[in-house]
């Protein structure tokens, strides 16, 4: 460059500033990568322990076994020292309770979303929405306590008064509490979805002389269906992964049953009961919790990915 004068926009401290900015930039990227690291950490730590588990127990016995009774042997020559690690009763129990929860939450959540989005005056909306948000914000341990304290005895009493045998920790009690917990989730997601259906479709239907109910049932709901099904999938995934309600209200009995009045147990309950208290990280009992964990992670992940794809596709359609 020789004797050319330095142009005024060539800064002499550029390299120093650049270095500082580079450090900040790296810090920012690192932070964003923490989220990725968490996912990798989850997958690897679960897979690592689950791998040890499957060295002890074959995956066929795990996936297709119908008996779950994880014991640690006190003496090595004890009868049944291995325990049984058949996951089916847990899967069926989880699905049963989730199904009860969804059977309650879907109609309630959808009906309230429709009311909020289409009928409620702004004033009513401003009262009802926060109420539902409170319902969503109450910790699940509170729902669990309430289910065990009030709902389960109530169902038992009602059952026995009409001559039905009801377990004291019935799937129904846990399912009802979980269902109510999920109502706000479904209603707020569906409310958003219904609101994003364009007003012009409503106008077209009203312009033809349809009543509001006809417009909602025949135009708005079909148009919103993909978005709503996405929200139901997300809700199902929440139900499957929910822990405290079932720990407190569903109990430990690994019965292979689809009767809502029986006591059943779930994947999450077993993870908690296997890992609270003393643990040895070489026993099949402790390691089985990680096999359950990776199963839970995979199932909820698949549900979420599908749900998010559906919802994203739905939004692009009307944006």
């Amino acid at each position: 460059m020789g004797n050319l004068p330095t142009a005024p926009f060539v800064s002499s401290n550029k390299t120093r500033r650049r270095l500082g900015e580079f450090v900040v930039y790296v810090l920012l990227i690192t932070s964003a990568l923490v989220a990725v690291a968490v996912t990798i950490g989850i997958v690897f730590s679960l897979a690592f322990e689950a791998y040890h588990f499957f060295q002890l127990i074959s995956w066929q016995d795990f996936l297709f076994g119908t008996k779950w009774s994880p014991q640690t042997a006190i003496r090595s020559d004890q009868v049944g020292a291995e325990g049984s690690f058949g996951v089916l009763p847990l899967v069926v129990g989880t699905l049963l309770i989730s199904a009860i929860a969804m059977a309650i939450a879907t109609p309630l959540g959808l009906a309230s979303a429709i009311y909020l989005a289409e009928y409620a005056t702004p004033r009513a909306r401003s009262i009802i929405k926060p109420m539902l948000e409170i319902l969503a914000g109450i910790p699940t341990v509170v729902y669990g306590f309430f289910a065990a304290l009030m709902i389960a005895p109530f169902i038992r009493m009602t059952g026995s008064s009409i001559g039905l045998e009801v377990a004291s920790e019935s799937a129904l009690a846990a399912g009802i509490a979980m269902g109510i917990m999920i109502v706000p989730l479904i209603s707020s997601l569906s409310d958003d979805v219904i609101n994003s259906v364009p007003q012009s479709l409503r106008d077209a239907s009203y312009g033809l002389g349809a009543t509001q109910a006809e417009t909602i049932r025949k135009v708005i709901l079909p148009a919103a269906l993909p978005g709503i099904s996405g929200s139901l999938l997300l809700a199902t995934s929440t139900a499957i992964g929910e822990t405290m309600i079932v720990v407190m209200a569903a109990g430990m009995a690994a019965n292979l049953s689809v009767n809502p009045l029986d006591a059943v147990t779930t994947v999450t309950v077993q993870i908690v009961s296997l890992l609270t208290g003393d643990q040895e990280f070489d026993s099949a009992k402790t390691l089985s919790a990680f096999a359950l964990g990776i199963m839970l992670f995979c199932v909820t992940l698949v549900l979420n990915v599908i749900a998010q794809k559906i919802v994203k596709h739905f939004r692009e359609q009307y944006d």
């Binding site: 479709l201 077209a204 239907s205 312009g207 002389g209 349809a210």
Partner: peptide, 19 residues
Amino acid sequence: MVALRAHVGMVFQKPNPFP
């Protein structure tokens, strides 16, 4: 209102066919 709008139809500014 239902009977009125069956009697007086409307076409809107932007085409709005149902999906």
